[in-house]
Amino acid sequence: MKKLRILSLCLALSLTVCLFAGCTDKKTPDQPEKGDNVSDVTQGDQSGTLEGQDQEIEIDEGNVQDPFAE
């Protein structure tokens, strides 16, 4: 009887282990590492410094070719 109980216990344990292994032991394929595809694009500073200017008033400035050029 005692041996039967031990065997039954082992049986129950095995069932549990089997179920647990079936649910979790699914190997997923390796995810490819995401590389850094962003390249740093550095743009040079194209504007001159404006020193000593506490305030700026916007002026619209237009350029024209001399219409009376010969």
Partner: peptide
């Protein structure tokens, strides 16, 4: 000739470029 500049600022400047020397 009409020389206009785009924008809405109260102040505006028109630059007439490439004017030859010599009393133009």
């Amino acid at each position: 000739a009409t020389c206009a500049v785009s924008g809405t600022s109260a102040q505006f400047i028109i630059n007439v470029n490439n004017v030859k020397a010599g009393g133009q």
